[in-house]
Design a binder for these strands. Structure first.
Length: 556
RNA sequence: UGGGGCGUAGCCAAGUGGUAAGGCAUCGGGUUUUGAUCCCGUGUACCGCAGGUUCGAAUCCUGCCGCCCCAGCCA
C-alpha cells in the first residue's frame, strides 16, 4: 500500500493488531459453501481475505464450509478451486473443509453438553418454530430443555450412532429463549441427516450447523480475523458465545463488511441456480452470468476483477455498483494489452467501381496504435469489401461523419472512398453501395494525409472469414434485480444476440480466450468452451451512440 | 411495535473538532487514419433531518426520519 492510500476499516484494525503486538501475523480464511459457483460478490471477499493476509505476510485458508450435505456437490468444490486460482490467489497447503473437523466439532459439542449449556431437544421442527417466538414476542423454553447431562450425552451418542430418524432430535445450545437476538434463542448445533456427504462420505449422520462449525473451524485454524458480510453481524454474539464457552487456544475475531452488489446483476446463489436450472442461461459459466466462471468465459481478465473490487472499497454501507465501473476496468486492461483487428459485425457490401477487378493489395495495419512494438499485420484489400451497416446512412444527420451518399470516408489503413450509388432491394433496404476510391490516398503514401472526417473499418469480401459472434448485454432490465418480486419479470430478452460476422483473415486462427480489440467495436475473444464462436467481452466507449441516444430523447 | 447495522454529489469513497480528497458517470474543449485511447476543464454535496455543546461540528450530545438484516433442523 502506498503512503497516499488510506486504509479501509478492516485493514486499519489489522494494522493496529499487528502494531500493538496482539498478533504477530495474520491468518484469514475464505469459506465458501460448495453449493454453487462463485460470483462477483465472492470476488470481493476473496480479494479482501487473501489480499489482507498477503499484504502483511500472513496466510489464508481456502476452507469449504461443507456442513449441509443435502445441497453440496464436488462439482462446486472443483469450480471454486479453479476460480480462486484463476483470480490469482494461492492457498498453498491450506485447503481445508469444515468436514475435516467433524470429529473435533463433535467433541466440542459433547463438552458443551457436559458443561450443561447444550441439550438434545425432541420437539418437531414446527414446534421449535412456535416455541421460538417472533421478533417482538419472546420465545419459551422447550420441555426438553432441562434434561440431565447424562441423558443428553446418551441421546447425542445415539444420534451419532444413527439410532434416530431425521428430525427426531436436535442438539441445541442452551442460551436464552427471551433474547431479542433470535440467534441466541437456543440455536441448533447438530441435526440428523441420513445422507452421504460429498467429502466425508457416510461417516456421519449428524451434521453441525453453520454458526457452531464456522466459529470452531476458525478457532482450529487459528484464524485471527474472520471477515464476513453484514448479514452475520447479529451472529457475532453467538460466535463469541462459543468461544467464551469452549475457550479454544486461539480466539478469532469476526468483523463484518457490506457485500458488493453489481447493478443489473443477481448475486444470490439460489437465483443464479434457478437461471441455470430453468435454462434461461446455458450454465453457471454462461458469459452473461456474474459468476467468476461466466466472466472468465466472457473474457474478463482477472486483473480487471481485482481492480474493480479495489475501487469499490471495504465499508459497511450497502452498495450497488454501476456496471460501467466493471466494464471500465476491463477496457483499461485490454486497452493496453489487446491487439487490434478488424471485423464487420453487420455486413454491408460495397463495390469500388474504379478498382481493378481481381487486384489485391496487402495493406499494413498496426496491431496497436499506441505501441509499435506490438508489430503489424497485412490485410488484403480488394474491389469488394464489407463495411458495417451502421457506418452508412442514406439520410445522415449533420454530425454523422461516416459514409453517406456523395460523401467521403477513409477506410482504415486503406484508401479514401466516396459513395456514388445506393442499391436497394425490392423491399427498399440498402443492400449494396457503389463507391469509388481515390488511388492517391493509400494509407502511408502520396496524399494519404488528406483529411476526411471519418474513418471506418472494413474487410475484403473475398478474404473474409465468416464466424458467429455473440453480442451480450445485461441480463436484467432493472438496476437491482435482487430486490425484484420475481426476477423473471425483469429479464432482458435481448441479453444475447448472435450475428454472422465477417472477420479479417488474421482472425482465423484466433486462440480461444485471447482478447483482441475489433477496432471501433469492442473487445472480443473466441469462446473457450465451444472453441468456435466469438464472444463480445465489452464494447468500446461510444460517444456517437450517446449523441444518437440524446437525439432520440429530444425527439420523443 | 424487539434486536443489529447503515445514511458524505447519479454510483463508489476519503475525512474521526478547524472550515468537504479522489475515482467512475455527466457536461464542455484539445489531439487522433479506432466518434477508442490520451490530455485539459467541468459539480454550491443545506455531509439524512432538527435541535444542542463549542470561538469553530460531516466529525461530540439529544431527538427524529429513511434504508438494509434477523423469526432455516440454510450458509
Amino acid at each position: 500500500m502506498s503512503e497516499t492510500e488510506t486504509r479501509d476499516f478492516i485493514r486499519q484494525i489489522i494494522h493496529d493488531d499487528l502494531e500493538s503486538g496482539k498478533h504477530d501475523s495474520i491468518v484469514t480464511r475464505f469459506p465458501p459453501e460448495p453449493n454453487g459457483y462463485l460470483h462477483i460478490g465472492h470476488v470481493m471477499s476473496i480479494c479482501l481475505n487473501f489480499g489482507v493476509a498477503a499484504e502483511t505476510g500472513g496466510k489464508t485458508y481456502l476452507r469449504f464450509d461443507d456442513t449441509n450435505p443435502g445441497r453440496e456437490k464436488s462439482e462446486y468444490v472443483d469450480a471454486i478451486e479453479r476460480d480462486v486460482r484463476w483470480l490469482g490467489f494461492d492457498w498453498d497447503e491450506r485447503l481445508t473443509h469444515a468436514s475435516d473437523y467433524f470429529e473435533r466439532l463433535y467433541e466440542a459439542a459433547v463438552r458443551l453438553v457436559e458443561m450443561g449449556v447444550a441439550y438434545v431437544d425432541s420437539l418437531s421442527a414446527d414446534e421449535i418454530r412456535e416455541y421460538r417466538g417472533t421478533l417482538t414476542e419472546t420465545g419459551k423454553n422447550s420441555p426438553y430443555r432441562d434434561r440431565s447431562v447424562a441423558e443428553n450425552i446418551d441421546l447425542l451418542g445415539r444420534m451419532r450412532a444413527g439410532e434416530f430418524a431425521d428430525g427426531e432430535h436436535l442438539l441445541r445450545a442452551k442460551i436464552d429463549m427471551s433474547s431479542p437476538n433470535m440467534n441466541l434463542r437456543d440455536p441448533a448445533l447438530y441435526r440428523i441427516r441420513h445422507i452421504t456427504h460429498q467429502h466425508a462420505g457416510d461417516a456421519w449422520c449428524i451434521y453441525p450447523m453453520y454458526d457452531f462449525a464456522h466459529t470452531m473451524s476458525d478457532a482450529f485454524e487459528a484464524i485471527t480475523h474472520s471477515l464476513c458480510t453484514l448479514e452475520f453481524e447479529d451472529h457475532r454474539p453467538l460466535y463469541n458465545w462459543f468461544l467464551d464457552q469452549l475457550q479454544p487456544e486461539h480466539r478469532p475475531r469476526q468483523i463484518e463488511f457490506s457485500r458488493l452488489n453489481l447493478a443489473y446483476a443477481i448475486t444470490s446463489k439460489r437465483k443464479l441456480n434457478a437461471l441455470v436450472e430453468e435454462q434461461i442461461v446455458s450454465g453457471w459459466d454462461d458469459p452473461r452470468m456474474p459468476t467468476i466462471a461466466g466472466m472468465r468465459r466472457r473474457g474478463y481478465p482477472a486483473a480487471a476483477l481485482r481492480q474493480f473490487v479495489k475501487l469499490g472499497g471495504v465499508t459497511k454501507k450497502d452498495k450497488l455498483i454501476e456496471m460501467g465501473v466493471l466494464e471500465n476496468c476491463v477496457r483499461e486492461v485490454y486497452g493496453e494489452t489487446a491487439e487490434r483487428r478488424m471485423a464487420v459485425l453487420k455486413p454491408l457490401k460495397i463495390v469500388l467501381s474504379n478498382y481493378p477487378e481481381g487486384q489485391v493489395e496487402m495493406m499494413e495495419a498496426m496491431n496497436h496504435p499506441g505501441n509499435p512494438d506490438m508489430g503489424t499485420r497485412e490485410m488484403p484489400f480488394s474491389r469488394e469489401l464489407w463495411i458495417e451497416q451502421d457506418d452508412f446512412m442514406e439520410e445522415a444527420p449533420r454530425k454523422f461523419f461516416r459514409l453517406k451518399p456523395g460523401g467521403e470516408v477513409r477506410l482504415r489503413f486503406g484508401y479514401i472512398i466516396r459513395c456514388d450509388e445506393v442499391i436497394k432491394n425490392d423491399a427498399g433496404d440498402v443492400v449494396e453501395l457503389r463507391c469509388s476510391y481515390d488511388a492517391d490516398t493509400r494509407s502511408g503514401t502520396g496524399s494519404s494525409d488528406r483529411k476526411v472526417k471519418g474513418t471506418i473499418h472494413w474487410v475484403s469480401c473475398e478474404h473474409a472469414v465468416q464466424t458467429d459472434v455473440r453480442l451480450y448485454d445485461r441480463l436484467f432490465t432493472e438496476a437491482n434485480p435482487n430486490s425484484a418480486e420475481d426476477f423473471h419479470a425483469v429479464l432482458n430478452p435481448g441479453s444475447l444476440e448472435t450475428v454472422s460476422a465477417q472477420l479479417e483473415p488474421a482472425l482465423d486462427d484466433l486462440e480461444p480466450g485471447v482478447a483482441v480489440q475489433f477496432e471501433r467495436l469492442g473487445y472480443f475473444c473466441r469462446d473457450s468452451v465451444d472453441g468456435q464462436a466469438i464472444n463480445r467481452i465489452v464494447t468500446l466507449r461510444d460517444s456517437w451512440a450517446k449523441l444518437e441516444k440524446q437525439a432520440m430523447q429530444q425527439q420523443n
